[in-house]
Design a protein around this nucleic acid. Structure first.
Length: 628
RNA sequence: GGACUCGUGGCUCAGCCUGGAUAGAGCAAGCGGCUUCGAACCGCUAGGUCGAGGGUUCAAAUCCCUUCGAGCCCUCCA
């Protein structure tokens, strides 16, 4: 509970005061004070001004007097600020003990929002015809971070990755291999996913533009892919699985794990679509159009200004959005599960088993990957389609907010970076495009970062062994990339600049990880085993108390992040922790002190910081290095 | 034409949901701090009519309306 304890105490006392005054229904705030105004402040007087017909200043004064009658264990002093705020000063000797003691528990930071219920987080879901680029990384890191936060908030999280192995993009590379005879082996050891994306996909789509008769071949290939037992489908399956293996390698390198891979081809063959199609008709959610531009189509009626959306074409085939409906319903457990599950042969970063869907019950194990609540991480450009799905799901199961589309803005390339790819943009940022070959691959960014960090580490530690440098470079490079992807709001466009992304100073993961490394060195050199059996009242310096306070906010931050699916909240919190620690580090010498008692108290604090930061960084999928 | 998102110092952002006290950071600029618990750090200086206009309110960066600018979506494409 930590800092929450003092907030609760104050809130309860203020409620009692209001009861005595026979006032109810006042939704006042009790929150962390701004710097310079004590530790906690309340706006209660402002809210009472109208009712009591007095100005806030007088009311605060009155409340201040009444508050002195209240029993308080954690509040040392109250202040009626002329502005109208009621401010509180904590009894830090007591509060420090509570906060630091709790921080040593394994459960520190855990909150209970999920009540141990199931939740699905779906992310990644990249067409298996190319390597992951920096735009995909935002999706993956957001999804992975959210799933970590929800786990901390007591949800049982299952992470799904939807493999769209039967779409047009896959058909394109199949056309490349079959029709244009691209070699099935990549040249000089190139990763297979990179080869498919950089060479086969880009060059094949270029040829379409030159020769429109190829469109027929493309369409036929797509149809054969969906047909299942065709030779094309078997070949396609082999190719897409090889690409997928390459993509997963990139994801695992980023510390990302999944619970199940769901193959679109199997969803199509499972017959889920026809079941949901019947259900849609029964419930009157779709209508058959007899005339007009959508004649002979099944459509979902658009509300207000929105056009109707075609679900089944006049030729009887399902559209793109239609494929998402049975999948969404399956995730919510609204349909009988047609799948068997097989283990995917791999060891993931979190060492959990990775399952994959199968329609074949040989050596299959039953699993349940459905949940009452589903979070789907998709680019906000798909918002309109996702809104249709959300509305449909609400009508199916009558539970509001059970299907959540977590949208985020795209990653664009800075004009400088676009230029390095041969694209002149006139100073403007550029949208990435897999088809046009305008993108920066995730693997290449990781590689560049790792090189840079290896250099920096060598500079600082010339004597360090290569294996240790490698470990540090891995930790810091992944941290840097992941942090950049979540530190700002989801609805802000990230303009990726290759040169700037290599910056390791300021509001970056290395800044935060560095604070951890510094603290680790203090603990190492102290020669003392940190304990919470210390005199907390000795921690009196401003920078000490500020660090304690920041540590005590962990639960509140996790709650905020989980309630709002907001990874950036934890990113900011990690940064705040590091700032507080660096200020402490500058102002207080831990090991220099002659006073052993004080030294022990400070060691306790430093260790508490390290434990907390390590846990918070873990929510971001970032590891905390002891040295760097 | 319609829907959605963004607009805060030179640049990148936080704060907005849940209105209140001096609008916070980082980068870039200028100055200062390593005979060390590691300078991937810290301190100081300078820089802001919170796009514009109106409204609600005792109180608006925050809520409402209008408007301008930027982005994105609006295929029987995926």
């Amino acid at each position: 509970m930590t800092f929450q304890l003092i907030l609760d105490e104050i809130k309860n006392n203020l409620k009692k005061i209001l009861d005595d005054l026979s006032i109810s229904d006042v939704n006042f705030s009790v929150e962390l004070a701004k710097p310079g105004f004590g530790d906690v402040s309340s706006n209660i007087a402002f809210l009472l001004a109208k009712e009591l017909k007095k100005n806030p200043k007088e009311i605060t004064q009155m409340l201040f007097e009444k508050y002195s009658q209240c029993s308080s264990t954690l509040v040392l002093k109250t202040e009626a600020h002329p502005s109208g705020y009621l401010n509180f000063f904590a009894d830090w000797a007591k509060l420090s003990k509570l906060i630091l003691s709790e921080s040593y528990l394994d459960t520190f930071g855990a909150v209970d929002i999920g009540n141990n219920s199931n939740i699905i987080v779906e992310h990644t879901s990249v067409n298996p015809n190319k390597a992951l680029h920096i735009g995909h990384i935002r999706n993956i890191v957001v999804g992975d971070t959210v799933s970590r936060i929800l786990t901390k908030a007591n949800y049982k999280v299952n992470v799904l990755n939807y493999i769209d192995d039967s779409g047009l993009q896959v058909a394109d590379i199949i056309v490349g291999f079959k029709h244009f005879k691209f070699d099935e082996e990549p040249p000089n050891g190139k990763k297979f996913d990179h080869y498919c994306g950089d060479d086969v996909y880009v060059k094949t789509t270029q040829k379409y533009e030159l020769d429109s008769s190829l469109e027929e071949i493309r369409k036929n290939t797509l149809k054969e892919l969906e047909d299942g037992d065709s030779e094309t489908a078997v070949f396609g399956d082999m190719i897409t699985r090889k690409v997928l293996a390459g993509q997963l390698e990139t994801c695992w390198n980023l510390n990302v794990s999944y619970d199940c891979l769901n193959f679109e081809s199997q969803i199509i063959r499972s017959g889920l679509w026809s079941k949901i199609f019947e259900k849609l008709k029964e419930m009157g959610l779709i209508e058959f159009e007899n005339e007009g531009k959508n004649a002979q189509c099944w459509v979902i009626r658009g509300d207000d200004n929105e056009d109707d959306k075609v679900i089944v074409r006049s030729n009887g085939t399902a559209t793109y959005i239609a494929k998402d409906i049975p999948y969404a319903a399956w995730k919510l457990g609204l349909l009988d599960d047609p799948f068997y599950y097989q283990k995917y042969d791999a060891t993931q970063p979190n060492s959990k088993t990775l399952w994959q869907t199968s329609l074949n019950n040989d050596s299959a194990t039953p699993q349940n990957f459905t949940a009452q609540k589903v979070v789907t991480v998709i680019d906000s450009r798909q918002e309109r389609l996702q809104k249709i799905i959300t509305t449909l799901m609400e009508k199916f199961n009558s539970i509001p907010d059970s299907y959540v589309h977590l949208g985020y803005e795209s990653v664009t390339l800075s004009s400088d970076t676009a230029k390095t790819l041969g694209l002149e943009t006139d100073g403007k940022q550029a949208q990435m495009s897999g088809r046009k070959g305008v993108y920066v691959s995730a693997d290449s960014v990781c590689e560049l970062l790792k090189q840079k960090i290896t250099e920096e580490t060598k500079k600082r530690h010339p004597e360090m062994e290569d294996s240790e440098i490698e470990k540090i470079a891995q930790s810091v490079s992944i941290g840097t990339l992941r942090y950049e992807m979540i530190k700002q709001d989801l609805d802000k466009i990230i303009t990726f600049d290759l040169a700037k992304s290599l910056s390791l100073e300021g509001d970056t993961a290395p800044y935060i990880q560095y604070a951890y490394a510094r603290a680790s060195r203090i603990l190492e050199k102290s020669g003392i085993t940190p304990t919470t059996d210390v005199n907390f009242s000795l921690l009196q310096e401003k920078s000490e108390l500020n660090l304690v306070k920041t540590i005590g906010l962990f639960n509140l931050q996790v709650r905020d992040a989980a309630n709002n699916f907001a990874p950036k909240v934890i990113a900011r919190y990690c940064h705040d922790l590091a700032v507080s620690f660096n200020s402490f580090y500058e102002h207080v010498k831990v090991l220099d002190s002659d006073n052993d008692e004080l030294k022990s108290s400070r060691i306790c604090l430093v260790n508490s910081f390290n434990i907390t930061l390590e846990k918070a960084l873990d929510l971001l999928g970032i590891s905390a290095p002891n040295r760097m």
